[in-house]
C-alpha cells in the first residue's frame, strides 16, 4: 500500500503519554486533608499508539470519552509533548518545530471558538491573515473560495456572537483553512449542529479534501459523520489503538447480522425457523434476527412464505452505532 500511494504524510510510532492526576476521595475530611497532602495517580492516556496516514485521506478517529482522542490530536498538533515514541508529520516533529510546523495545519476545536466574539467575522479573518502572514493574493483567493463554497456571504459582516451555532461552525472551519493548511484536524466539528448544518459541513469537508487534497483527521461521536466522510477509521480505547481499517471491513466483520421484519395476514401461531431468533410476534407482524453466515435470508423468507401470507418484508443491517458499541464491549472499554 505504501508503494502505491507514496510515503506517508503522518506517521506515529509508539507514542505514549501519561498524566499525573490528583486522586480525590469523598468526604469533607478527605478534602481537607487533600489541601495539604495530595495523592497522585499516574494515568496512561496513550499507550504505544502507532499509525500512519497518507496524503489526501480522511480519517475518522473514534473512541469513547476519555479514550485519548484529544490527547492524540494535541500531540499531533504540537500542543503536547509525548513521553515516548516518535511522530513525523510532513517531515516535522510537531512538538520540536512548533512554530514552523503549525503553519501547515489547521485545527478546529468544536467546543471552542477561534473567532473574536464581538467583531464581524471578516475582522477575525484579517487578523488570522496577519497571524499566519498569508500573502495578500493567497488570502483573497482562499477567502473567495471559502465564502462561496460555505455560503458565508451574509455571515462575514456579522459579529460572531450573533451567529447561530451552525453558522459559526462554518465560519470556524473557514478560519482554519485561510492559510491553506495541508492537514486539517477537526475535533468534533458537528457537535450540537442541526441536520442541515451537519450536512453542509460534511459536504464541505469532502470538497476541500477532493479539490485541495487536504488531509483530514476528525474525531466525532456521531457515526453518521464517519459514514458520510471517512475512508478509514481509527478506534482508540483506554489509550490503545483497537481498530484500524475501513468502515466496510468493520461492517463485514460485525455486519453479518440482519433483522427481518415481516408483515402478513393474520396468523396466531408463532413460526419458529431453525437458526433464526424470533424477536417478537404479533398476529400481523414478526421480527427475526439472523446471522447471514449461518442462514441465508432467501431461505428464511421461503420458509416463512410457506406458512404465512406475506404482505411486506424489510431487511435491516445493524446500524453502525451498534457495531461500535459492540466493538467497545468486546474490548471492555
Amino acid at each position: 500500500m505504501q508503494n502505491e500511494r507514496g510515503p506517508y504524510l503522518i506517521s506515529l510510532q509508539g507514542i505514549g503519554k501519561s498524566f499525573k492526576v490528583a486522586r480525590r476521595s469523598a468526604g469533607l475530611r478527605q478534602a481537607a486533608k487533600a489541601l495539604f497532602v495530595r495523592e497522585h495517580a499516574i494515568v496512561k492516556a496513550l499507550d504505544e499508539i502507532s499509525f500512519s496516514i497518507h496524503e489526501g485521506e480522511i480519517v475518522g478517529y473514534i473512541g469513547p470519552n476519555g479514550a485519548g482522542k484529544s490527547t492524540t490530536i494535541k500531540v499531533m498538533s504540537g500542543i503536547l509533548v509525548p513521553d515516548s515514541g516518535s511522530c513525523s508529520i510532513m517531515g516535522y516533529t510537531p512538538w520540536k518545530d512548533r512554530a514552523a510546523y503549525v503553519k501547515h495545519i489547521g485545527v478546529v476545536f468544536g467546543q471552542r471558538s477561534q473567532l473574536w466574539w464581538d467583531v464581524p467575522v471578516i475582522d477575525s479573518y484579517e487578523l488570522l491573515r496577519d497571524i499566519y502572514k498569508i500573502p495578500a493574493e493567497t488570502y483573497r483567493a482562499n477567502l473567495n473560495m471559502l465564502v462561496d463554497t460555505l455560503g458565508l456571504h451574509n455571515l462575514i459582516n456579522t459579529p460572531v456572537r450573533q451567529l447561530s451555532l451552525g453558522q459559526r461552525m462554518r465560519c470556524e472551519i473557514a478560519a482554519s483553512l485561510l492559510h491553506s493548511p495541508k492537514i486539517l484536524f477537526l475535533d468534533e466539528p458537528t457537535i450540537g449542529l442541526d441536520a442541515v448544518s451537519k450536512i453542509a459541513v460534511r459536504q464541505f469537508i469532502k470538497t476541500i479534501n477532493k479539490e485541495k487534497g487536504v488531509t483530514v483527521i476528525l474525531t466525532t461521536h456521531d457515526m453518521s459523520d464517519i459514514e458520510a466522510l471517512a475512508d478509514r477509521i481509527l478506534m482508540i480505547g483506554k489509550g490503545a489503538l483497537l481498530y484500524d481499517g475501513t468502515l466496510s471491513e468493520l461492517r463485514s466483520r460485525f455486519g453479518t447480522h440482519r433483522t427481518i421484519t415481516v408483515d402478513f395476514r393474520e396468523c396466531l401461531q408463532p413460526v419458529d425457523i431453525p437458526g433464526v431468533i424470533l424477536l417478537s410476534w404479533t398476529p400481523e407482524r414478526a421480527l427475526y434476527s439472523l446471522d447471514t453466515e449461518h442462514v441465508s435470508i432467501a431461505s428464511v423468507i421461503s420458509q416463512l412464505s410457506e406458512l404465512v401470507e406475506i404482505i411486506d418484508v424489510a431487511i435491516e443491517t445493524k446500524p453502525i452505532d451498534e457495531i461500535i458499541v459492540q466493538l467497545y464491549k468486546e474490548h471492555q472499554i
Binding site: S77, I79, A99, A100, V102, I105, F109, R112, I131
Partner: peptide, 14 residues
C-alpha cells in the same frame, strides 16, 4: 482554565 491556551500553541507566533 478555558483551554484557550491550546489555540495559542497551534498558531505560528510567539
Amino acid at each position: 482554565a478555558g483551554g484557550e491556551f491550546d489555540r495559542v500553541l497551534v498558531r505560528p507566533r510567539s
